[in-house]
């Protein structure tokens, strides 16, 4: 690990000013320190935000929840309100990492996780995300875990978070404080960027920005599911995951939000797919049609071709379960 200066922020403004001056923010550290040990990241300065008062989950005036950026993943998953009103979020969090990591990893940090692309992690290889302009060896290389949607010629990495997939399905907002003291909220829908030719820029966060909270809208009466398909039964990243929030009325899909993990540079959502489902009576044929729409531009890279049929099957299974379809119905 390269040497760095360490400072502890006593206020959000300390962290924002530190970030504006080039420091890297450390919260749980479970991803950052891993990357620093490998020198994939080599910040010269760290600003530790763990003592900031951002560890509470509060109810909002709108009937939703404001989740402080430092709320550990374990606490968020176990919160009674989250378990009752946003089960897709509890399920997604519990599907990620291990008990030890969930105790340390934070809500804000989880959103900012870096990709697990092997080439990003291997500093002997070129990587446009790690070293802009150096190239991408995942394209044409080992790419079993890589993207099938929204990738570019510069980068085919995927976002590893489960939590962020659920947050996108729940239409959450990210609250951000800037170095000038102003606060803004960015919907998770707009928080992430696709790789294009700048895969090293992953989110809308700029120097001087500090995530202070994630805000969930008021809960809606819905069936919520999170299904994660992975190589091991536990403690593995998603190959494909599906978060579904489905409202049924009189035998029809009144509303539906779907978000997908493991497919792209960010949690993926396609409103055209949701529009195809809305107002319809649930059936496997309908779900298959919607899945084809989702995947019409999907491109396999060779080793990850299997993700295309896997996504379709997982989406159909999740929707059938959420809509209460019997086997074969």
């Amino acid at each position: 690990m390269r040497p760095f200066d360490y400072a502890r922020a006593e206020a959000v403004s300390d962290a924002a000013k530190g970030s504006a001056a080039g420091a890297t923010i450390i919260a749980g550290g479970t991803n950052l320190l891993d990357l620093m040990k490998l020198e994939v990241m080599a910040p010269e300065r760290l600003v530790d935000i763990n003592r900031l008062p951002l560890g509470e989950i509060e109810e909002t005036e709108e009937g939703g929840l404001k989740i402080g950026a430092l709320v550990p993943n374990a606490d968020l998953a176990a919160d009674q309100r989250v378990r009752r009103d946003y089960p897709v979020l509890s399920r997604a969090l519990l599907a990620g990492a291990s008990g030890q990591l969930r105790n340390k990893a934070t809500t804000g940090g989880n959103l900012c996780q870096r990709t697990r692309c092997y080439y990003f992690y291997d500093t002997s290889e070129p990587c446009n995300k790690r070293e802009p302009g150096s190239g991408c060896r995942a394209i044409g290389g080992f790419n079993r875990i890589h993207a099938i949607l929204g990738a570019s010629d510069a980068c085919i990495a995927t976002h590893p978070s489960d939590m962020a997939v659920a947050m996108r399905a729940l239409k959450a907002d990210v609250e951000i404080e800037s170095a000038d003291g102003s606060r803004r909220t960015v919907p998770v829908d707009d928080f992430y960027r696709l790789p294009h030719d700048t895969p090293h820029i992953e989110t809308e966060l700029e120097a001087g920005d500090v995530i202070t909270a994630v805000i969930l809208p008021a809960p809606v009466t819905s069936e919520q599911r999170y299904r994660k398909v992975r190589d091991r039964a536990s403690y593995a990243f998603a190959l494909v995951s599906v978060a579904a929030v489905v409202s049924l009325e009189e035998g029809r899909i009144a509303d539906v939000t779907l978000a997908f993990g493991g497919l792209a540079h960010c949690p993926w959502r396609d409103e055209a797919v949701e529009a195809r489902l809305k107002g319809q009576a649930p059936s496997r044929a309908l779900f298959a049609e919607a899945a084809d729409l989702l995947l019409k531009d999907a491109t396999g890279q060779g080793h990850n071709d299997f993700k295309i049929p896997l996504t379709k099957r997982t989406m159909i299974a999740v929707l059938a379960d959420a809509c209460g379809l019997e086997t074969g119905e």
Binding site: G29, T30, L33, D34, D48, S98, G99, Q100, N103, K104
Partner: peptide, 27 residues
């Protein structure tokens, strides 16, 4: 592993289990 993957370094901090390899002592 020294990367939070194996759990051999698990200790409790303020009563909670964490991977002690993935956190800085100064924190």
């Amino acid at each position: 592993c020294d990367h939070g993957q194996c759990g051999a370094c698990t200790v409790m901090v303020n009563g909670r289990r964490i991977n002690s390899c993935l956190t800085l002592a100064c924190m």
